[in-house]
């Protein structure tokens, strides 16, 4: 990697689709340094002092919003969080108008969570502030994929060549899409598994192996990632019942036994225990689910810093 490539020379982080493998590595390397800050007694550095970050959450979120807020505060940014219940979005104002009003206050970054795919692209076109996608519809959730990759790399020492099985509602999952894009870019072997009604078209074009057999997906896997099954999918006729889902696709210790002995279990949360994952797997020895949450802060610090702070040189120092 050349020194020039080792910079996040972009205004926005809209999706993993836009990132090169070098940029992904830069974020993960920067996150290594950021993680160390979280282990200090005084967990704060002045990297984003005087920078303003607005967290605009137009869809309910606890985990991601909290994670961004902690990351921003540790970097000394001035932050405020707007959730849909208190914003003017509910008063009939358009997203573009809301963004322009926020823009008038000269923020450096806007972190957006929105129910519509592409909402971040729309905002990026009308705002001078950098936009960080904190989840848009069923499109992407890039910081989740980056923190998942960070966690895998920390545990396995590499990403290239890992067999990663992702199971659950792939069709409606922005976490799946971002992870699949990232992992194929860095040379991991991605397997996607779920009922055929929840597997999106185009898997082969994405370089992903799709299967309806949990056994085949999990066989010799280094990483087993479970995705949340939402109750409303059952009403949409995607599968008959949560009970049947668990019986056919739920991750149990017996099914997990096919994975490599040192396989790690991941879940972006929130979990449905007894639906997509058995409790003894979620809480079992391979589970890194809480590590993902901890790493989320470090990765988001890295993203914020690389977009609004200095360049890579300073980060490495």
């Amino acid at each position: 990697m050349t020194r020039d490539a080792a910079r996040l020379l972009r205004k926005d982080l809209l999706g993993i689709a836009d990132l090169s493998a070098a940029e992904i590595a830069l974020v993960l390397d920067t996150a290594d340094a950021m993680k160390e800050i979280g282990s200090r007694p005084i967990k704060k550095v002045p990297a984003l002092r005087g920078k303003t970050v607005i967290n605009l959450f137009c869809e309910p979120s606890t985990r991601t919003r909290t994670s961004f807020e902690v990351a921003e505060k540790r970097l000394s940014a001035d932050t405020l969080s707007i959730s849909v219940a208190t914003s003017s979005v509910v008063k009939g104002e358009t997203l573009v108008d809301t963004a322009r009003n926020l823009e008038a206050m000269s923020p450096d970054l806007i972190v957006l969570r929105h129910a519509s795919s592409g909402a971040c692209h729309l905002l990026a076109r009308v705002c001078k502030a950098g936009i960080i996608n904190a989840g848009d519809g069923t499109h992407e959730h890039p910081t989740q994929a980056l923190l998942d990759a960070f966690t895998m790399r920390e545990r396995k020492g590499r990403l290239a060549g890992l067999k990663v099985a992702i199971l659950g509602d792939l069709l409606h999952s922005r976490v799946f899409r971002s992870n699949a894009l990232l992992l194929t870019k860095v040379g991991a072997e991605v397997w996607a598994c779920g009922p055929p009604t929840l597997i999106p078209p185009g898997m082969e074009q994405m370089g992903i192996r799709a299967t309806t057999s949990v056994e085949e997906a999990v066989q010799d896997a280094d990483v087993v990632m479970m995705l949340r099954i939402q109750l409303e999918r059952m009403q949409g006729g995607f599968f008959p019942s949560l009970r049947e889902y668990f019986n056919v696709f739920g991750m149990t210790r017996a099914r997990l036994a096919r994975a490599r002995p040192d396989a790690i279990i991941m879940h972006p949360g929130p979990m449905n225990r007894g639906v997509e994952i058995a409790s003894d797997v979620a809480d079992g020895p391979g589970s890194v689910i809480l590590e993902q949450v901890a790493n989320g802060v470090a990765v988001r610090m890295a993203v914020l810093y690389l977009l609004a702070g200095g360049g890579a040189d300073e980060a490495a120092a």
Partner: peptide, 13 residues
């Protein structure tokens, strides 16, 4: 249109 491109963009098909 339901297909690869809508899938990549997270658009309902």
């Amino acid at each position: 249109h339901e297909g690869y491109h809508a899938g990549q963009l997270g658009l309902r098909g």
